[in-house]
Design a protein around this nucleic acid. Sequence first.
DNA 1: ATAAAATTGCCGAATGGACAGTGAATAATG
DNA 2: CATTATTCACTGTCCATTCGGCAATTTTAT
Lengths: 183, 183
Amino acid sequence: MTIQSKMQAKNASPRILGAARAIAHREGAGKITIDAVAREADLSKGGVLYNFPTKRALLAGLLDEMLAEHHERLASVPEDRRSRTLRGHLEAIVQARAVDDDLSMAILAAAASDPRLLDPLRAELTGDLERILSDTQDTPGAMVVVLAIQGLRFQKLLGLPDGGADLRGRVIEQLRAMINELE
Amino acid sequence: MTIQSKMQAKNASPRILGAARAIAHREGAGKITIDAVAREADLSKGGVLYNFPTKRALLAGLLDEMLAEHHERLASVPEDRRSRTLRGHLEAIVQARAVDDDLSMAILAAAASDPRLLDPLRAELTGDLERILSDTQDTPGAMVVVLAIQGLRFQKLLGLPDGGADLRGRVIEQLRAMINELE
DNA sequence: ATAAAATTGCCGAATGGACAGTGAATAATG
DNA sequence: CATTATTCACTGTCCATTCGGCAATTTTAT
């Protein structure tokens, strides 16, 4: 019971999504369950299902939120720089917090349960990729950077070895340099 | 009931693992269930659980098998080439078949259900990474290649946009070139 | 060598827990 | 009052795991 015990929030969706993220964070994406989310959001199960009529919808909502944040990040890169989208992707990773990992974890959970949930993500990335590649003549070079960024994501996500924070920093520098050398 | 109805195989484990892979391949990693595996392996549920006392053990077995195959692939790179391990990782991706994707999918499923299942994989990759980095002076450069390779893996795995087969080929060429330029 | 005993590999029904989803009743809100 | 948000009590399903039994195989004892 929180302070707002009796208060009816106008929209519990954000609280629900937050709860889902918290669970993914603490216990792993596989533990995202309607009951668990309800408990975490201090809501009944029915309450959750009112906002997200199905679990699939809940997962879709998580992805949605993530894509929205992705947009914000991209938008925070100065308009006039070359390879803007590509830089955005890189800086997004640099700034990423722990929560984001767990959200990515949710993506994987989603992918495992129903690959189609990733469709919006695919669409988004397709657009990004087009922009990135049309920003340069050296498409393979740009693609390598894109792939390395993806690699960074998943490496962090799955807790795979990364050679240490020091190397990580130098790698990011290297990627920045590679982006600058694209034309 | 097959021809060998009455015959007692000495070890059904390989058949069980094969069945699990087949299911992951056809229906996705999330569909790996003891019942399903039992049916696919033409075995009873109890039989499966006799060989792998828990589902967790079954998943661990899958990862084990995968790591073994990974070893074979690395071993197939000529001894005398520079950056041997790194080349091995790259060529492994180039040669990878559909089955491997689905197995990777199983990895993700495993990660979602219990992150610790990935420990052996982490150990293996830690070793590989050490070898790769000690093979060169340009550690950030090598690391970028490693990351790009990981990126390729996951991009294929999750069906994320890759810019087309043509670009993919050129990227692989580029990565080979980058490996050659490492010293 | 051979009967008895133990072990191995497996079967399949039963158990129980976890979970998604439903629907009628209820409270809050405007 | 009417609509909206939420609760509560269930339902049905899926699924991992348990367990007692059984046939084939191997070991032990005689």
